[in-house]
Computed example of a mutant assay.
Amino acid sequence: MIIHPVEIIFHNGRVRITASVSCQAQGISWPEQLWYELPRELEDRLSLRADGFLVALLLQAMSLGEDIHVEGAVSGRLLRNLEIYQSVFSSWFPAALRPVGFIPRDIIAPPAIVGPPAVAAAFSGGVDSTLTLLDHSGLAETDAAYRITHVLFVHGFDIPLAAPEIYDAWAGRFRASLLPLGVELIEVQTNVRQFVDRLPWIWTHGSALGSVALMLEAMLTRFYIPASSPYSDLEPWGSHPITDPLMSTETMEIHHDGCLPRVDKILRIADWPGSKSGLRVCWEHPDSSRNCCRCHNCVMTMIGLELAGTLSHSTTFPESLDYQRVSELIIPIGEIQECESTIARAVNLNRGDLASPLGAALRRSRREARIGRAARHLKQMREGLWRRLFRSSGNS
């Protein structure tokens, strides 16, 4: 794989940082250019280094088994970190990912920060990113070196590039809610998903977020990636407290932030006016003004808001909580402990009406998981028996 020289061009009144990408594998269909588009006033604060492009494409190169030739400058610290990054991901997904080599044109430290230093966070309007925003904005963060000054809202991740009206509507809503916090919204567009969608997005979203931040490494000293899971439920995932900091360079630290149970996060953010008017958690059915109120993510969020007593005031959840739908939820194995935490919180708040249907969903999900494990075990035993019979028949 070759990452060709990074260029900055102007496009539709904005500034676009772009690089051509080529690979040796046959049958790969992706755009000629990988690009990131930002407000034009940030032109002098963009990085012409290849750090972000390397991070964005690393897992893809590992899946193809191709070394990465970089026709540009790369951070020495980042290169060392990415050796460990590869070791982690190849141990998590050994059948799909294997370590590759890096051949950069130059290995040098990033330049000094241009202009006032800034601290940013990834922001989607969801529970995780809202907690990170509130914990590290002027409301709570006392250390200026860690205080968020900007948030990056990315178009092209969960909101498709083909749906600008949805993105623009949410961006306008977020900008209004951020104003009292003194935090600036940076609108970013990118086609990075078209380069990594051969792999599951749950593997690649962390490196995609890191790549966006690295486009601004001439501006940022810190970047927060909000956590998806609490420490009790950590599993191999694209964004993880082990791997996210490994995308740091000499001048910018990347932090994985907020590994708390989801219900605790919701209770902490529920009273913020921005949560009542702009909480966006539905990625299955993107809409410009509301959450669907029916998918797993919506229902679990609505349960937390109901426990906080703010669901009826949350304008992006126009439907009431359907308790029958709660009882029919399928709780993934990785969310069992989070579900238990939510049930315990409901019991402590004397909300047996919520604890009961959620408990029914948890019991059924556990039962189905046991049946699934037993079926897989039986299948493996049968396959092993047939292999032994085949070998004993003299066919091996």
Results as ranks from 00 to 15, higher is better:
79 L>M: 10
382 R>I: 13
260 L>S: 05
72 G>F: 09
296 H>M: 02
82 L>M: 01
258 G>F: 15
189 Q>V: 04
368 E>W: 09
101 G>P: 05
144 A>T: 02
208 A>I: 00
302 M>N: 04
246 L>A: 11
258 G>R: 02
277 S>N: 05
1 M>K: 01
204 T>F: 00
42 L>A: 06
144 A>I: 11
249 T>V: 06
280 R>C: 14
288 S>M: 15
50 A>I: 01
135 D>V: 07
277 S>T: 15
238 G>V: 09
350 N>Y: 12
223 F>A: 09
322 D>H: 13
199 L>W: 10
80 R>S: 10
9 I>H: 03
340 E>G: 07
62 M>F: 02
150 H>C: 08
203 W>M: 10
303 I>R: 13
80 R>N: 08
83 E>D: 03
255 H>E: 03
118 A>N: 00
376 R>G: 03
390 F>D: 07
86 Q>C: 05
32 E>Y: 01
327 S>Y: 09
341 S>Y: 12
395 N>Y: 07
175 R>T: 14
314 S>T: 15
368 E>I: 12
267 L>T: 04
127 V>H: 06
94 P>A: 06
60 Q>W: 00
256 H>K: 01
1 M>V: 15
341 S>D: 14
299 V>A: 04
115 G>E: 04
233 D>I: 12
235 E>W: 13
146 Y>S: 07
295 C>W: 11
260 L>P: 07
77 R>I: 14
47 S>W: 09
79 L>T: 08
388 R>I: 03
243 T>H: 07
367 R>T: 15
159 I>W: 10
